[in-house]
Design a protein around this nucleic acid. Sequence first.
DNA 1: CTAAAAGTGTGACCTACATCACACCAAATT
DNA 2: AATTTGGTGTGATGTAGGTCACACTTTTAG
Lengths: 186, 186
Amino acid sequence: MGHKLRQHIEQITPLSDAEFDYILSHFTPRKYKKHQFLLQVDDPVRNDFFVLSGLLKLYHTDAEGKEHILQFAMEDWWICDYQAYFNQTNATLAIDCIEDVEVLCLSLQNRDKLCSELHKIEHFFRRKSNGGYIAMQRRVLSLLNNNAKERYEQLLAQYPMLFQRVPKTLIAAYLGVSRETLSRLS
Amino acid sequence: MGHKLRQHIEQITPLSDAEFDYILSHFTPRKYKKHQFLLQVDDPVRNDFFVLSGLLKLYHTDAEGKEHILQFAMEDWWICDYQAYFNQTNATLAIDCIEDVEVLCLSLQNRDKLCSELHKIEHFFRRKSNGGYIAMQRRVLSLLNNNAKERYEQLLAQYPMLFQRVPKTLIAAYLGVSRETLSRLS
DNA sequence: CTAAAAGTGTGACCTACATCACACCAAATT
DNA sequence: AATTTGGTGTGATGTAGGTCACACTTTTAG
């Protein structure tokens, strides 16, 4: 079987062996343990992460110390504080591991290099970004439209696997509901 | 002064006269009057719209008939039901005019043609999409983090001009608050 | 193997915001 | 000029979901 990254890119655009090797050479593999941080608030954001295995969360901690989860990421997902990454400023979001994790790291420099050298990679990232935008928009709509129970059921329907791997406290922080209220819904 | 679209694209990438003329030839100009629809639910989504002048809203109407506004768009903004546009399915969102409007229409075919012929246009749209993703993510965070008053003040700080052009009812529908509550905040 | 920490459920109570109902005013429309 | 329509404010009341407090169980770490 091919490399996970290759399979992932080829869902959008085919690659030759040489192209893929070249692309892969711009990524750095790394491993992290459960509870380790990939990114902490105020860190410079050096990399975007492509997840090979494991589970992570991207979140913001507010003034009262409450966590708000923007994204979970598992196999085949990308995760990053993109605002800070693209503007090369310091992180306002944190990323850490819910499970042990293997990722491929891509610096902004290498991303831009790949995008300018390989038109099909620029195309790939455009498509990815479009998809992400649409997903975020759907989430905004669901926050505007739906009550706690409806949001919970939508998430359950869309990512049933998540509920086996993630504590309810985190599901609540993702849905924007208190842990207690979530517990009374299900 | 140059064309508004040209200025807009050149914020990201420079263009020759010939390139711009070629690009522009893929857009169709159109005008709409206040209250006219650019897109209704269940319409096929033929175009993405670049706004030259005027003001529009992109919104969803829920089962109880309540409007939830996903986006306002004014000069220099793009507006579309992207989910339906990119998948070439029918609209689930509607777009209509809050003021008289001039737009440039771009079909998906022409967008893809431009993107594959001109690497710099693919780059432009990637950058735009990245920006849109980040903006949506910030909005999700603000819905999770902040109460009605805080969201109202953020919006006011970010787009003060909006409050001169848009009735409070629509601001409320954008913020996810009832009209009455909004009226008691300010 | 034991102690601490993390995860979960549930009752009692509280509050931010929704809903309903009405009044008033400004701007279209006839 | 008269009349409908759209926009806005405000009181009274209802409710979804938050907060606090506690108990119990499971996992993690020393």
